[in-house]
Design a protein around this nucleic acid. Structure first.
Lengths: 341, 341
DNA sequence: GATGGAGTGGCAACCGATTGCGCTAGACCT
DNA sequence: AGGTCTAGCGCAATCGGTTGCCACTCCATC
C-alpha cells in the first residue's frame, strides 16, 4: 500500500463520482447524509487524506503560516536567543489550535525572503521575529505592504512603520527596572547593552531607565553605558569594561537576561557580591533567569500572550480584517539579584 | 500588483510558450541560452516565484520536512525541553542548507499524526522528536513503516524497533558520569530520574551508572533512586525526597540538566554545599548548565551534529538510499558541580 | 397526466507547473 | 536538389481536489 488513496479511489468504491466525494468530505449540504456517511467510512478505511497541494492550488489558500527568524547579528553558532525560542513554542501551539500549519525558517537579512513565501504560495502570511534595526529592512517591509502580503512583525513599533507590529513596552520596562532599583537605594545605574539603533528595543529600554533617573534627554551618563550585543560573552566583556573604567556605580540594568548572566559571571570573578555590592536587573525573563545565583530580577515579556497575539493578528489580516499594532505590558519580576529582599 | 505573476504572464511577455518558461527556469538544456536569459530577466522583473503547490502537485514531491514534537508527559505549559529546542535550531539550519522547508508541529501521542503528513503530501518525510516510551506508539511507527512513509526518530534505539532511530549513547554517558564521580572519591551515587520504561533514555543512563558502580543487574540500590519527570520542580521534589530518606550518599547523577538544576535549588535550601558536601552531574548540557551556581558538570549531547544527522538520514531515505540507525557519543563536560578541580 | 420544485449528484473547467512526444527550420552531407 | 540530423520549442496530458452549472429523479400539486 505504497500508493496513496485519492478521491477517485473512494468514488469508485462508493459508486459515486469523484466530485461527490470532495463535496461529501467538505460537508456540502448537497450530498445526502446517507451518501456522506458511506464515503466517510470508506475514506477512513483507506486512510485517505486530502492532498494539501491540490487543495491549496485550487483554493489559492494554504492554511499555513511562515515564521521567519532573523538571526542575531552575532555570528556565533551557539544558539538562538532563548526568549525567541520560548516565543516560538507559543506560536507553534497557537497555530495548531487555529488549524494552521507552521513553516519555519532562519533567514539572513540580506536574502530575498520578502518574496519567497507568499509569492510562492507556501504560506498565507508571515510572522517576522528577531531583533535588528528595522531601517535595514524597511525597504523590504514596504515591498511586502506593496505586494499586499500579510505579515506581522515582533519588535519595536515606530511611527509610520510599514505593516503591523506587535511589541512589548520596552520603555516602560526600562523605567520600571530603574525605578525599582532607585526605590531600593541605588543611585548610579549602569546600562549594559547596545544603545545604538542596532537594537531599537535596547535603545528604548535604555531611554526608560534614563527617564527614571531624571534625565530627560536620551543620554544620561555615557560613562555608565557599555555596548553589548545580545550574548553572554558580550555581557561578560561589557561588565569587565565597565569596572575597568573606574567610574562608581551601584547597580546594573542589563538590556537582556543573556547579557545580565554574562555580567554576573564577570562580577563574581572580580569578587563583587550581588546584590550586596551591586544590584542587577535583566530583561526578558528567560527560563535560565530563575536559575542563576543569585536568581535574576528581571522584566518579563509575556511570550505566551505575545505568540497568541502575533498569530491572531496575522489571521485577522488573512481574513481581510483590520489588525492593529499593539504594545504589550512588561512586568517586573523580583527575585534576588536586585537586593529587594 | 496584488495579483501574482504566473509562468503564463512571463511566456506572453517573452513571446514563447508557457512550458518553455518552465523549462528555462529549471535550466533544461533544450532551451537556448538566449531564450533562457530573456525569460530569467522577465521573471526577476515580475518577482516571479514558482508556485509551490502546483509544482509539488505535479512532481509529487514537496521538498519539505515535517518535524513532529511530542510534548513531554508533564502537563505543564512552562515550556519545551531546552535540549529539544537546541536541537530544533540545528534541524532548522540543516534543512535550510539542504534546500528543504521545515514544517513544525506539536503533537499529542494520541492524535493520528501518523497519517497526517506524508499522506496529505505536506512533507516528504518526518522527524520525530520527544521523549517517551516508544511502546506507546509502536503501532503507529509500524504503520508508518507499512505505509512506506519516510521518517527518523530521535531517541532510544532498541532492537527490532521499526524505522530508523538516531540517538545518543545514553548508557555510555551514564557510565562515564558515574566513573568520573568515583574517580574523584565518591562512593554512593544517587540517581534522580524516572527509571521506568517511561523514559527509556533515562533508564539507560541509570543502567550505565549502575554498571560503573559494579552492579551488573539493572537495580543497584533502590533506596538511592528517586523517580522524577523531566522538569525542574520534579528535580526539586526528588532531591528533597532523597534527603528525607536518610540513606547516606555523596553524589547525585541526575537524568537531565533540568532535573539537576531543580535539585541544586533543593540542596541549597537544605544548606548542603555543592560540590563540597555533595557532587552532582547532569545530562544534556543545555545552555543553562553553564550558568548555574556552581556551574554544572554534565554529559553533553551534541545537538548540532544530531540535528544534521537526523536531517541527512531522512533525506537519504527520501532518495531511497539506505539509512542506518546510529548512536552518537556522549561527552563529559567537567565544570564545578562534580568537585573535580 | 402535465407541471413544478426540491433533493442529488454528474460534467467539465480550473488552479499552475511539469514533461513526453512531436513538429519545424536550418545545418550539413552526398 | 534531396535527404538526414539536431537544436529549439510548442502541444496536450497530467498531478488531485474544488465548484458553477446542468441533468435527472421523485413526489406533490393542479
Amino acid at each position: 500500500m505504497a500508493v496513496k488513496a485519492t478521491s477517485f479511489d473512494i468514488a469508485q468504491l462508493a459508486g459515486v463520482s469523484q466530485p461527490t466525494v470532495s463535496r461529501a468530505l467538505r460537508g456540502s449540504p448537497t450530498v445526502s447524509e446517507h451518501t456522506r456517511l458511506r464515503i466517510e467510512a470508506i475514506a477512513k478505511q483507506l486512510n485517505y487524506k486530502v492532498d494539501k497541494n491540490a487543495s491549496s492550488l485550487r483554493l489559492q489558500e494554504t492554511r499555513t503560516i511562515a515564521l521567519l527568524f532573523f538571526e542575531d547579528p552575532t555570528p556565533d553558532e551557539t544558539g538562538i536567543n532563548p526568549f525567541f525560542l520560548s516565543m516560538l513554542g507559543s506560536i507553534t501551539r497557537t497555530c495548531a489550535q487555529r488549524g494552521y500549519d507552521l513553516l519555519i525558517s532562519f533567514q539572513q537579512l540580506s536574502s530575498d525572503w520578502h518574496v519567497d513565501y507568499e509569492d510562492s504560495r507556501k504560506a498565507d502570511g508571515i510572522i517576522l521575529l528577531g531583533y535588528g534595526d528595522y531601517e535595514l529592512y524597511r525597504e523590504k517591509l514596504e515591498k511586502l505592504v506593496e505586494q499586499e502580503t500579510h505579515f506581522v512583525r515582533w519588535g519595536f513599533a515606530q511611527e509610520g512603520q510599514p505593516g503591523t507590529t506587535i511589541g512589548c513596552d520596552n520603555f516602560r520596562g526600562g523605567l520600571d527596572a530603574a525605578r525599582h532599583l532607585m526605590q531600593h537605594g541605588r543611585k548610579k545605574i549602569a546600562f549594559l547593552g547596545d544603545a545604538s539603533s542596532h537594537y531599537p528595543e535596547f535603545q528604548d529600554r535604555y531611554r526608560g531607565s534614563c527617564e527614571a533617573q531624571g534625565g530627560e534627554g536620551i543620554i544620561a551618563d555615557p560613562a555608565l553605558q557599555v555596548d553589548a550585543l545580545n550574548a553572554q560573552d558580550a555581557g561578560y566583556d561589557a561588565a569587565q569594561q565597565l569596572i575597568a573604567r573606574g567610574v562608581p556605580f551601584d547597580a546594573i540594568f542589563a538590556a537582556s537576561d543573556t547579557i545580565a548572566i554574562g555580567a554576573l559571571t564577570a562580577l563574581r570573578e572580580q569578587g563583587l557580591k550581588v546584590p550586596e555590592d551591586l544590584a542587577i536587573i535583566g530583561f526578558d525573563d528567560i527560563p535560565a533567569a530563575g536559575m542563576t545565583h543569585p536568581p535574576l530580577t528581571t522584566i518579563q515579556q509575556d511570550y505566551k500572550r505575545a505568540g497568541e497575539i502575533l498569530v491572531d493578528s496575522l489571521l485577522k489580516q488573512i481574513r481581510n480584517e483590520h489588525a492593529t499594532t499593539a504594545v504589550l505590558p512588561a512586568k517586573l519580576i523580583v527575585r534576588q539579584s536586585c537586593g529587594a529582599h
